[in-house]
């Protein structure tokens, strides 16, 4: 296992290096922050004055060298717009995004698991078809649309939930639900197929032959084993959560890393964008590594050696 973890960590370092190169190049391919910081009719001299004071007049290879050597020291540079260390901005905002994670996971799991189990048990019936339709709807519906519809229904029409911003517990419900819907479809489909597989196994048949009550067979013997593959989905869920947060946090004016990402992109804040993408990548890599290790722990048939 130790060898496996070491191997994954080394792969992660290589991957992060590649991500760093890509984000460095792509960020600069989409424009220059100096253009957005001066009025449209600014003269070239005024623009160069701003560019020089932002340190953007240096050649690309020099900027890349500064960027890569900075990463090694844990220094992602200062945001050229907000004038604060980019990593500090990221870690200031990260808790706000993470606050949404538990509730959105809870919403996703509490809807998806019963739906997936029922769809499997009632395979081929109208219930299965409805569950399938919900899954398709969840995958096909963009987050921003769900968010706006939720705001209209629950804030404007019913006036029971606030339309946006961080605040008390009620402020968490709409953004968490919007984020959670991204995963409902995936988890539900996975649970359904896992359940169908498990329902066909010998030990389930044996449990039935032994005369166990049907609900015990489903919820104790089938679901426990059907849930194991869902664990692997958690890594994907975190990736989807990070990207989903960009839209959700923008619509709900939630000051998390999703908003920070979109702000960095919109303002061509190179150091901030580089820091956000790289640190997001680190989190996703770490979560996937932990998930793989946990998977081996909960499923004794898995061995990485």
């Amino acid at each position: 296992m130790q060898k496996y973890i070491l191997n994954r960590l080394l792969q992660g370092v290589v991957l992060l290096f590649i991500v760093a190169l890509i984000v460095f190049a792509l960020a600069r391919a989409t424009g220059n922050p100096a253009d957005l910081m001066v009025p449209e009719d600014a003269t070239e001299e005024e623009r160069q004055f701003v560019e020089r004071n932002l340190g953007l007049d240096r050649p690309y290879h020099v900027q890349l060298f500064v960027f890569l050597t900075g990463i090694v020291r844990g220094d992602f540079g200062d945001s050229i717009v907000y004038k604060k260390p980019a990593a500090e901005l990221f870690f200031e905002r990260l808790p706000n995004t993470l606050k949404l994670l538990p509730l959105s996971m809870f919403i996703a799991v509490s809807i998806a698991i019963p739906l997936g189990v029922v769809a499997a048990v009632k395979r081929g019936t109208w219930i299965d078809q409805v569950a399938g339709a919900i899954a398709v709807f969840g995958v096909a519906t963009p987050n921003f649309w769900i968010a706006i519809v939720c705001i209209y229904i629950f804030s404007v029409w019913l006036d029971v939930l606030p339309p946006g911003r961080m605040g008390g517990p009620l402020h968490y419900i709409l953004p968490a639900f919007t984020l959670g819907t991204f995963s409902i479809a995936g988890i539900m489909r996975l649970i359904r197929s896992s359940m169908l597989e498990v329902l066909d196994t010998e030990y389930v048949k044996l449990a039935r032959i032994k005369g166990l009550q049907e609900w015990k067979v489903f919820w104790k013997h089938c679901l426990r084993n059907a849930l194991i593959p869902v664990l692997t989905l958690f890594g994907v869920f975190v990736g989807g959560f990070v990207t989903g947060a960009i839209v959700t946090e923008t619509v709900f004016a939630w000051p998390g890393i999703g908003r920070l990402t979109i702000d960095a992109v919109a303002q061509r804040d190179f150091p901030l964008l580089q820091a956000v993408i790289l640190l997001d990548a680190v989190i996703i890599l770490a979560v996937n590594l932990v998930v793989d290790i946990l998977y081996a722990y909960v499923n004794p048939r898995i061995r990485y050696d």
């Binding site: 911003r165 968490y172 426990r224 849930l227």
Partner: peptide, 27 residues
Amino acid sequence: SLKAVWIGSLTLSLALVLACGGAATPA
């Protein structure tokens, strides 16, 4: 046990939601 893991996760989730949301006054 797997059950304990799930119960623990759900409890932790609820606790986190309450903890992070409790300080501010709802609008």
